[in-house]
Amino acid sequence: MSTNKTNKLSWAILLGGFAFLYLPIFILIVYSFNESRLVTVWAGFSTKWYGELFEDEQMMSAVWMSLKIAFLSASAAVALGTLAAIALVRSGAFKGKTLFTGMITAPLVMPEVITGLSLLLLFVTMSQVLGWPEGRGSLTIWIAHTTFNMAYVAVVVSARLRELDRRLEEAAMDLGANKFQVFIYITLPIVAPALLAGWLLAFTLSLDDLVIASFVSGPGSTTLPMVVFSSVRLGVSPKINALATLLVLAVAMAAFIAWWFMRRNELQRQKEIRSAFSQ
């Protein structure tokens, strides 16, 4: 096989793969502008489903509930997950480290029905024995989301911590910085992109969770995926397409901003390296 032929084959594979990944999303977006209620028959351009989406009070209050929980659980997960990553990478050996490592990687693959059921039973038992938490609602969803999200954050942040060149921290200490200063001025800026990536990942995972939230939620705490699911179960609805389009737009914008920042940082770094050499 010549290199040219191999190249063509790899491009064909990539194009096919991306078509598979993106066509369904593209179709979803196109039909959100469809006049007809029938999602598969095109009856002319319309934005009426977006209007109906914003008028749907149940949906809108679920959006706020989900955003609130996602924000709070992502923030808590970054705090706990970063501590866990430091414990994994920097603390050397300690009692129960194998158990600790296992508890961090297991949530990544654990089927959601098991996690959901087990947390629900925990909350029920706790409220019987300790009297806390009283009932279930956004607090219990927040605890559940923080728990599986901290595992994702720990994995992302520990990868970055391992890559960190420890000579930078040592150099700062040689120059008289104390432990706290080293952490604030050296370690934190270097791992900051991983913290941001971990936070965003946790935020989207929380926003997306249906199964675990269904188990641990109570009356009055309906999240967005729960509303979407009960609507989708009844069949396709263009309103869901409109919601999907807005979601894709938000993700695309966030991705673009992230890419732009990374690119700017990279260009800045190259400029600094060049000017350092020319001096």
Partner: peptide
């Protein structure tokens, strides 16, 4: 990034997309 990007949108909605594609009059 293009491979990962779809998984940042909702899982539920990406599965829902296939209903419209695969159903009887899809």
């Amino acid at each position: 990034m293009l491979v990962i990007l779809p998984s940042w949108t909702s899982f539920l909605i990406r599965i829902y997309a296939w209903i419209g594609i695969l159903k009887q009059n899809g």
